[in-house]
Deep mutational scan, measured.
Amino acid sequence: MDGTRTSLDIEEYSDTEVQKNQVLTLEEWQDKWVNGKTAFHQEQGHQLLKKHLDTFLKGKSGLRVFFPLCGKAVEMKWFADRGHSVVGVEISELGIQEFFTEQNLSYSEEPITEIPGTKVFKSSSGNISLYCCSIFDLPRTNIGKFDMIWDRGALVAINPGDRKCYADTMFSLLGKKFQYLLCVLSYDPTKHPGPPFYVPHAEIERLFGKICNIRCLEKVDAFEERHKSWGIDCLFEKLYLLTEK
Rank of each mutant, 00 (worst) to 15 (best):
M1A: 14
M1P: 15
D2K: 13
D2F: 06
D2V: 07
G3V: 12
G3F: 04
T4L: 08
T4H: 15
R5P: 06
R5S: 12
R5M: 11
T6I: 12
T6D: 10
S7M: 12
I10N: 07
E11G: 08
E12F: 13
Y13Q: 07
Y13S: 13
Y13K: 09
D15T: 13
T16H: 05
E17M: 12
V18A: 11
K20G: 11
K20R: 07
Q22V: 11
Q22K: 11
V23H: 10
L24Q: 03
E27R: 09
E28D: 15
E28L: 09
W29H: 09
Q30V: 11
D31L: 06
D31M: 07
K32H: 12
K32G: 08
K32R: 11
N35E: 14
G36N: 06
G36F: 08
G36M: 12
G36V: 09
K37N: 08
K37A: 12
A39W: 08
F40R: 05
F40K: 05
Q42A: 09
E43M: 12
E43P: 14
Q44K: 05
G45D: 03
G45I: 13
Q47N: 10
L48I: 11
L49E: 02
L53Y: 08
D54E: 04
T55F: 08
T55S: 12
T55C: 09
T55E: 04
T55A: 11
F56P: 04
K58T: 14
K58S: 14
G59H: 04
G59Y: 13
G59V: 08
K60F: 15
S61C: 14
G62W: 06
G62C: 06
R64E: 02
R64I: 01
F67Q: 01
F67G: 00
F67W: 01
F67A: 05
P68A: 04
P68C: 02
L69I: 06
L69Q: 04
C70M: 08
G71P: 05
K72W: 02
K72D: 05
A73R: 05
V74E: 06
V74D: 10
E75L: 02
E75R: 00
E75F: 03
E75N: 08
M76E: 01
M76D: 00
K77L: 10
K77A: 12
K77V: 11
K77H: 09
W78V: 11
W78Y: 09
W78A: 04
W78N: 04
W78C: 09
W78E: 05
F79S: 02
G83S: 06
H84M: 10
H84G: 01
H84F: 13
H84D: 03
S85H: 14
S85Q: 14
V87G: 03
G88M: 01
V89P: 01
V89K: 00
E90F: 05
E90M: 07
L94D: 04
Q97A: 09
F99V: 02
E102S: 11
Q103E: 03
Q103A: 13
L105S: 05
S108A: 09
E109Y: 14
E109L: 04
E109A: 14
P111W: 06
I112A: 06
I112R: 04
T113A: 07
E114F: 07
P116R: 08
K119E: 01
K119T: 10
K122T: 13
K122L: 06
K122G: 03
K122H: 02
S123R: 01
S123A: 05
S124M: 14
S124V: 13
S125V: 10
N127A: 06
I128H: 01
I128L: 06
I128A: 02
I128P: 01
L130T: 01
Y131K: 00
C132A: 13
C132W: 04
I135C: 07
F136K: 05
L138G: 00
P139Y: 04
P139M: 04
R140T: 09
R140V: 09
N142F: 08
I143R: 02
I143E: 04
G144A: 05
F146R: 00
F146W: 00
F146T: 01
F146G: 00
D147W: 01
D147A: 02
D147Q: 03
I149V: 08
R152C: 14
R152P: 04
G153Q: 03
A154D: 00
L155D: 01
V156Y: 05
V156Q: 07
A157Y: 05
A157M: 09
A157R: 08
I158A: 03
I158G: 00
I158P: 00
N159D: 07
D162Q: 10
R163D: 00
R163C: 02
C165E: 12
C165P: 15
Y166G: 01
A167H: 01
T169D: 02
T169K: 05
M170P: 01
M170G: 01
M170R: 00
M170Y: 00
F171Q: 10
F171D: 08
F171M: 02
L173E: 00
L173N: 00
L173V: 15
L174S: 06
G175I: 04
K176G: 13
F178T: 02
F178E: 01
Q179W: 07
Y180C: 01
L181K: 00
L181D: 00
L181F: 13
L181E: 01
V184E: 01
V184W: 00
S186L: 10
S186H: 13
Y187P: 04
P189K: 03
P189Q: 10
K191W: 06
K191P: 03
H192Y: 15
H192M: 14
P193Q: 15
P195K: 00
P195S: 02
P196G: 03
P196S: 10
P196E: 01
F197Q: 12
F197P: 08
F197A: 09
F197E: 04
Y198Q: 02
Y198N: 14
P200N: 15
H201S: 11
H201I: 01
A202D: 04
E203L: 15
E203S: 08
E203G: 04
E203N: 08
I204P: 01
E205F: 11
E205Y: 01
E205R: 11
E205A: 13
L207F: 05
F208C: 03
G209D: 14
K210I: 15
K210G: 06
C212T: 12
N213E: 08
I214G: 01
R215G: 13
C216M: 15
E218F: 09
K219D: 04
K219V: 14
V220L: 05
V220C: 03
D221Y: 06
F223C: 09
F223Y: 08
E224K: 11
E225M: 03
R226M: 12
R226L: 14
H227D: 03
H227M: 12
K228E: 12
S229W: 11
G231F: 02
G231Q: 15
D233A: 15
D233H: 15
C234S: 14
C234W: 13
C234P: 07
L235W: 04
F236G: 07
F236R: 10
F236C: 04
K238P: 03
K238L: 02
L239F: 15
Y240T: 01
Y240P: 00
Y240R: 00
Y240K: 01
L241P: 00
L242F: 09
L242W: 01
E244W: 08
